[in-house]
Design a protein around this nucleic acid. Structure first.
Lengths: 207, 207
DNA sequence: AAAAACATACATACTAGTCGGTATGTTAAG
DNA sequence: CTTAACATACCGACTAGTATGTATGTTTTT
């Protein structure tokens, strides 16, 4: 039907449609036919670019989700400035779309997929683990930097704290999915900010 | 084939097999035929007791998962004693099987189901919300009790803190699913205990 | 006898994936 | 400049399997 061809564009179209479908109904309920229907791409084209449904899903993690984490978290968290403010600002800016997208809470795409697939598909598990690793390291790095420059206390472990922060954030996002559409409770995020505030090194008022 | 019949037993058998299947592969990938195969119950019997697969899943939430939360969380948290110790002990006792069952982390059955189904099936959403409500209230109650009897500080809101605790706990459980089977990291739980410790009312050393 | 509790065979819809074929693009020989 | 040779990109009907759910018949209980 198309007179002009653009393999890269075709591939990207499929990838984005797949990401959307997966985000909406999960990977296993994602229908190849529905992805094709929403894009106008044909089955032949899909199976030319990807070995199968799994490979398509893997590519979504490797390319789209990893990219999003880099752009939305790793880069912002690497910015100079007061670690606590950068941390809170980044969460505030990004958590909104993770916790509540539009009027429905759809959760974090990465965490949703992890909960669904990690324990039953090693291919997904390792890929998702890698992306979480990037994310977690970004948290750990900013905390460690804060400790080194003296603005943060040194009586906590950046690695473990990073895992705790990320876990709590994902937990808050996933609990929000269960709220009635109208009343998504973001108050748990406030407690997370309070928790982060306590990392600040108290002014040494010693003589 | 069986000469003796026991409708309640049949129903219960189906319910438990369904819960197991759902826990292992999720609701949508749960196969009615597989549930029947593992139990020896026939399709006619299943559709006699339940209107369909969805109703079966709903019953698992209403009856089994709700019951588990009551037994494992609500009752233990209602015990008398130092709130902080009761809280930590309950989490310590239950989190193990939620976070890591055997050598694989399978996550929390309720949270897994919520992440999978809440946003696409209102029937599941409302039922799961109810069970989370019980759970969250149990946390809120013990915190409020602690405040009233003076062992806990009063500068935090029990309701919101309960949501934060539950969210973090679920987040930790769900992140654990993504770890390689051998090295499940429970260190985030330690930070949760530290967080809880800080609710304690400092001894009034005033004159 | 009547109703509840099952059993079996089947219907229907949907699934991912395949396969023979076609259209377009690229390279290189004549 | 033409044209043959080949490669990539794409098309869409078709297949084999699986899904839930149903229709009808049989057995047990009350």
């Amino acid at each position: 039907m198309n007179t002009t061809r653009d393999p890269d564009e075709t591939r990207r179209t499929l990838l984005e449609a797949a990401a959307k479908e997966i985000y909406e109904v999960g990977f296993r309920s994602a229908s190849v036919d529905r992805i094709l229907g929403s894009t106008g791409v044909t089955k032949g084209a899909l199976y030319h670019h990807f070995k199968g449904k799994s490979e398509l899903g893997y590519a979504v993690v490797d390319e789209l989700l990893a990219h999003d984490v880099l752009e939305r978290w790793v880069k912002p968290l690497a910015k100079k400035g007061d670690p606590i403010e950068v941390l809170k600002a980044t969460i505030r800016a990004q958590a909104a779309c993770v916790v509540a997208d539009g009027n429905h809470a759809k959760g974090c795409p990465l965490n949703n997929l992890s909960v669904e697939m990690s324990q039953i598909d090693e291919g997904f598990r390792t890929r998702i683990e890698l992306v979480f690793r990037l994310w977690r390291d970004a948290f750990a790095n900013i905390l460690r930097r804060g400790q080194q420059q003296g603005t943060l206390r040194v009586d906590f472990d950046p690695e473990r704290t990073a895992l705790f922060l990320l876990s709590s954030l994902e937990g808050i996002a996933s609990m929000a999915k269960n709220s009635p559409a109208s009343e998504i409770d973001l108050s748990a995020l406030e407690l997370l900010y309070d928790y982060i505030d306590r990392f600040r090194q108290p002014k040494t008022q010693a003589a």
